[in-house]
Simulated scan of single mutants.
Amino acid sequence: MKYEIFDISNFKQEEFEPLGTKAKYWCSDPAGNHYLFKSIETYDSTNKLISRDGEDWSEKIACEISKKLFIPCADYELAHNNTTRGVITKNFISSDNAYLVTGNEILKNYSAPINTEIPKKSEKQNIMHVYIILRRIIRNKPLGFNSLPNIKSAADFFTGYLMLDALLSNQDRHSENWGLIVTGKGRFHLAPSFDHAAGLGRNESDATKTHRLNSLDQGQHVSTYVQRAKSYFYLKDKRLRTFKAFEYFGILNPRAALSWLGQLNALTTDIMQATIDPIPAEIMSDVSKKFALEMLRCNKANMMTLIPFFKENLDPLFRKRQIKTYE
């Protein structure tokens, strides 16, 4: 059965989402349920309307993969509003008294007491800085989601977010694409993961994907392609690749990383394919489906090699030595 593409042409448009571009807006269905619609169309730096084809199916696949891994995430559905395609998601803040604070605001507001070097731009997130904030400031797991073995705190769950980024080759976990929820009682909880559309090779043409899938040149193969994915996390001035960002967090938090890799190990190729196949053919080609599956397979294989290394990091002295090698 294919994923449904919801027609929201009769939804009432309420307000533009201030984060990002005017391609995002809040709307409500006839029953009064509120959704954020994210169009695949957006505006470039010159205010020209452009289409980012594939952002809808990549977001949907990321959402379904997250659910299978038990990673808290915003729930996305494919949608269209007559003029353009996109996805819709319900507001994951259920209480009127609660609100979202994005990572850029957290980094700005809590940099001084943590006494950690502040990056010049919010996008240059110091990964150790983020880890300290998760441990000392946010602390609590996402609301409404169950703990897993060795996965209970905000830092534990964020380790899973970075594993998800590495699995998808998602290169868009910038400082406005994670955050905390402040409850009416003033408690801080890590927000569910959201905005994963910049992954699974959605920006590559079918011709490029076909070439990489069939090339005998190892440098052109998908297994090499996925290793190039960059995160928005930095160590000093070095930008980390998505795999390295997860690896570093796993050194800091090895028990959680090992638990998440246990979840990933259960994500078989058949399950991956069954997650991708229901995307309707009119929005995702067969070549794109094969390419996305191969990316998932390659990234999973790379991350599973980290298990012995993370087990060694359960020893505090070994972990301390490894952290120093990154400094």
Rank of each mutant, 00 (worst) to 15 (best):
K2N: 14
Y3L: 07
E4L: 14
E4Q: 15
D7P: 10
D7E: 15
I8Y: 11
S9E: 12
E14Y: 13
E15C: 10
T21H: 10
A23Y: 09
P30W: 07
N33H: 07
Y35C: 01
K38L: 04
I40Q: 05
D44S: 04
S45T: 12
R52Q: 11
E55K: 14
A62Q: 03
E64R: 01
K67D: 06
L69D: 01
C73E: 02
D75E: 14
E77C: 08
N82G: 10
I88R: 01
N91V: 05
D96F: 01
Y99M: 12
L100F: 09
T102A: 11
T102F: 13
I106R: 05
S111T: 03
A112R: 06
T116Y: 07
I118C: 07
S122K: 14
S122V: 13
E123Y: 15
Q125V: 13
M128L: 13
V130S: 03
Y131F: 14
I138H: 01
K141Y: 02
K141E: 08
L143F: 08
N146P: 07
N146D: 15
S147H: 03
P149W: 08
N150S: 12
F157W: 08
F157Q: 06
F158C: 00
T159I: 03
Y161F: 15
L162W: 08
L162T: 01
L164I: 10
L168C: 02
S169L: 04
N170Q: 03
Q171G: 12
D172F: 13
R173V: 02
H174A: 04
V182D: 00
H189P: 04
L190H: 02
A191K: 02
P192K: 06
S193R: 04
H196G: 02
E204V: 09
S205Y: 04
H211E: 13
R212Q: 07
S215A: 12
Q218R: 11
S223L: 11
T224L: 05
R239H: 05
L240Q: 08
T242D: 08
F243E: 12
K244E: 15
L258I: 08
W260A: 04
G262M: 15
L264D: 00
N265Q: 12
A266Y: 10
L267T: 06
T268M: 10
D270G: 11
I271F: 09
T275F: 09
E282D: 14
S288F: 15
F291V: 12
F291L: 14
A292S: 15
L293T: 02
L293S: 09
M295C: 13
M295S: 07
C298W: 05
K300Q: 11
A301T: 09
N302P: 06
M303Q: 04
F310W: 05
R319I: 03
K320A: 10
I323N: 00
I323Y: 02
T325D: 12
